[in-house]
Design a protein around this nucleic acid. Structure first.
Lengths: 213, 213
DNA sequence: GATACTATGTATAACTA
DNA sequence: TTAGTTATACATAGTAT
């Protein structure tokens, strides 16, 4: 039951293709109907089915003619101006996919960094050899980020501020590759590098992580 | 978050309408693209947006022209033959809604009858005044139905046949308003009208109900 | 081959930033 | 406003009848 996520290719099996055609044509027409009704616009559809010489059309021959005549009177150059052609359509899809991929990479990066962080906290120090400069930047950014979250959490809970006096938190940076922020992060990370602080930090970070996003 | 089940009417709010238009147009084009790819057919869409004089078209001006020229060369009478016009479209939707309504009514009827049945079983007899002839027919059909299910169940479980020797069960009737079946049902219902049988029946009916459909 | 069902993928209304 | 997110309604591939 809908195992495949849509293999966008010609369906070889005749029965399956006809079935898909009928179902999809029907819902396509429904969509056009809804679009015209909801938004009060004109639209028409012409579909050349494989099973008849005549196309299926919507909403009616006269309706189609009306829309077409509007379209035909426009010079071809002008017609192209607003069109959504296959090329731009494809570009949009590619762009969207790339965006999703980047988001995925960011998420993965964040998870890895979190893992690093807790590994370091458990070990009680940073094993410098195991991390690149980039890793360290990410790690320090994340620790800084968490510390700020902790500060906000403690303020909002009206508790005593144990670690340091937080200023009213500025909006957190959205990317770890901002150098200034990364350096600030390094400072904080350095602050936490004795064991007592680490244990405290871990406890509060757990709190912070839960409350954060 | 999609609270309303789609109110098929013009969206008054300008922002919401434009938003809906853009989203729906996009996915509509996607659907056309998928339909042509999956089924290897020709199709085009022309949409007159409210925000521009030129319509948005798909897949391309030349593609549209090609599809249109095919369409235009066909006499208008022939054009209508295969068309899915608004009237037939609407008729289809009404027909579907009526079918759903009927199914709903059947389900309700079945639930009511089941309720009746257990009420009678608990009381130990049928309070004749509380039920119409139709109710009694339904009730007897259902009891007959259940008894047959019980028989099948007992046979398949290779148990002793307590109530009566069931013949190999014929395919069950699909509607309670078949007179012959209803009369058979009455007979069975009559069989069950002493208290001991009723208690036994209730036990087995519970089994039957669980195993049935 | 049409119809019905159901589990799953997709579209999208409302919301947030 | 346009873009991104989320929860819910809708579409539909595979299956059974």
């Amino acid at each position: 039951m809908t195992r495949k996520k849509v293999k966008l290719a010609f369906i070889e099996n005749n029965t399956a293709r006809k079935s898909a055609y009928n179902k999809r044509k029907k819902s396509l027409v429904k969509k056009v109907d809804e679009l015209t009704a909801l938004c009060g616009i004109d639209a028409c559809a012409i579909i050349y089915g494989p099973y008849d010489a005549q196309p299926e059309i919507w909403p009616s021959p006269s309706g189609v003619q009306e829309v077409l005549s509007k379209f035909m009177t426009v010079p071809e150059v002008e017609q192209s101006r607003k069109m959504m052609n296959q090329e731009s359509f494809l570009k949009q899809r590619i762009s969207k996919s790339e965006k999703q991929l980047q988001k995925q990479r960011r998420d993965n990066r964040e998870k890895e960094t979190t893992m690093h962080m807790f590994r370091c906290l458990n070990a009680g120090n940073i094993v410098q050899n195991s991390m690149s400069v980039g890793d360290l930047n990410d790690l320090s950014w994340m620790i800084d980020h968490n510390l700020r979250a902790i500060g906000r959490r403690m303020e909002s809970d009206d508790r005593e501020n144990i670690i340091h006096q937080s200023p009213p938190p500025p909006p957190p940076p959205t990317a770890p590759n901002n150098n200034e922020i990364a350096m600030m992060g390094h400072g904080h990370a350095g602050m936490a590098m004795n064991n007592n602080d680490l244990i405290q930090s871990q406890m509060f970070m757990d709190m912070g992580m839960n409350g954060y996003e």
